[in-house]
Design a protein around this nucleic acid. Structure first.
Lengths: 177, 177
DNA sequence: ACCTGAACACCGTTCAAGT
DNA sequence: ACCTGAACACCGTTCAAGT
């Protein structure tokens, strides 16, 4: 985390981390089997910083909750530009990743989406977040404000599309397959 | 291109390309200033293979055209899984890239989107394509069919959202700002 | 269990030199 | 203009050895 924050994603390297800890490069292999595991652990730790419980407040409109969670992920995920490039190669799958995914799925299901639709919708939002950040990182740091605005614009279009699937609470809907 | 197709994205390397051509590694620097330029050229060449003129047929519904172009890009772009990982770091900006972008913008404008909305919508579709392929590549080759299906599903939600912005042809719309 | 030194097989890039 | 040999400053990873 210190290396990522201080010297950028390119410096996140086995040797760089080892140097930061003051240890020989191969000493890292005592704790991680390979670099992929290190990066996965890093992404997991980043997702652990997301306070996802905040987005289950049932007094808020569902659309508001989904929007807020998506925005939180989009802003917290890339601590440093280029960190996405790292975790794009090695997707996280630890408990924190799972917890965030569960929260999003729960809100979507609560909004009236069936299990299959909720899974597809969750994946769609994932893709939008990762794609947006990746394109922003690729374009360089100059168009960061534009990218954020376009993310929000796109998110609204996407939520509009999903709204058709959202059956209001209390209304009959088909049984889950 | 031969290296990418034959030995994967990881083998797309200055030294690998040089070896394939039968030349010393540094000879590549006669033609390209650095590796980023090589990858950009590669992405440009890939986009040149997209027959984007096919998607301007005015007899087809606009939504059909946008959908078809998006699907064409999604299938042609990653010749090999992981090629996205390459061009995500070095976004292409050559004439072919421009031509494809122009075609998409034209169809969107033709569908009744104002210039600003068309630009945002084009970017949204870009993000969805790149995000989808990137997530697929990250997940590994096993879930490729699922990823493609989810791309199409998400694309429909996205088109539903955009449909609200599409003023039918012949109808008055606000003057471009 | 945890660390080291040394090595292996790679990278991108540069430099000086040749034709 | 186009290529070479040699080198520099890096990588991830492994191996044998130490405590």
């Amino acid at each position: 985390m210190a290396v990522l924050a201080g010297r950028g994603a390119d410096a996140v390297t086995i040797r760089g981390i080892a140097a930061r800890v003051g240890v020989a490069p191969n000493a890292v292999y005592t704790y991680f089997p390979d670099k992929a595991a290190v990066v996965r652990g890093l992404a997991e730790h980043l997702l652990g910083r997301v306070d996802h419980d905040r987005f289950t407040d049932p007094s808020q409109p569902r659309r508001e909750l989904v929007r807020a969670l998506a925005l939180e992920l989009r802003t917290k995920l890339p601590a440093h530009p280029g960190s996405v490039h790292l975790m794009l190669g090695h997707p996280p799958d630890g408990p924190h990743t799972w917890a965030v995914r569960e929260t999003l799925l729960a809100v979507l299901a609560d909004a009236g989406l069936g299990p299959g639709d909720a899974a597809d919708a969750s994946h769609l939002i994932d893709v939008h977040i990762l794609g947006s950040v990746a394109v922003e990182a690729a374009a360089g740091p100059e168009g960061s404000a534009v990218a954020a605005a376009r993310f929000r614009w796109g998110l609204e279009q996407l939520l509009d599309g999903l709204a058709a699937y959202a059956v209001p609470a209390g209304v009959e809907r088909p049984a889950p397959r």
